[in-house]
């Protein structure tokens, strides 16, 4: 292993944490307890998106991905808890 740059070691950390959390999402049997692992996965993917291609539009893409997956988790959790009717 010759000289690894800072960007490469950071993206390796992000991607390996993403793969570990994906395995744990699949392995967890309780539906509600899958969601925190899914959150870790989306953090890792959003971080590696920014490290993969440093461009001013990448931050828009990473934020859009993160907000999208958070909204998805919110919808899944609320729907599992009984729909938006008992929200508030």
């Amino acid at each position: 292993m010759e000289d690894i740059t800072t960007q490469e070691i950071a993206i390796l950390v992000c991607v390996s944490i993403g793969v570990i959390s994906a395995v744990r999402v699949i392995a967890e049997r309780n539906t509600m307890k899958k969601l925190p692992f899914l959150n870790v996965l989306s953090f890792a993917i959003a971080g590696s998106l920014a490290l993969l291609l440093p461009d001013p539009l990448t931050i828009l893409a990473a934020a859009a991905y993160f907000v999208g997956t958070t909204l998805e988790s919110n919808a899944i959790a609320s729907s599992y808890a009984g729909g938006p009717k008992n929200d508030e």
Binding site: L35, I45, L49, T58, T69
Partner: peptide, 23 residues
């Protein structure tokens, strides 16, 4: 939830091609 793991694997391929608006 598993489908969203699949989407997490697809988005980096789109970004790596440089199609950021599509991503």
């Amino acid at each position: 939830i598993s489908l969203s793991v699949l989407i997490a694997g697809i988005i980096p391929f789109i970004v790596d091609r440089g199609l950021l608006d599509v991503a």
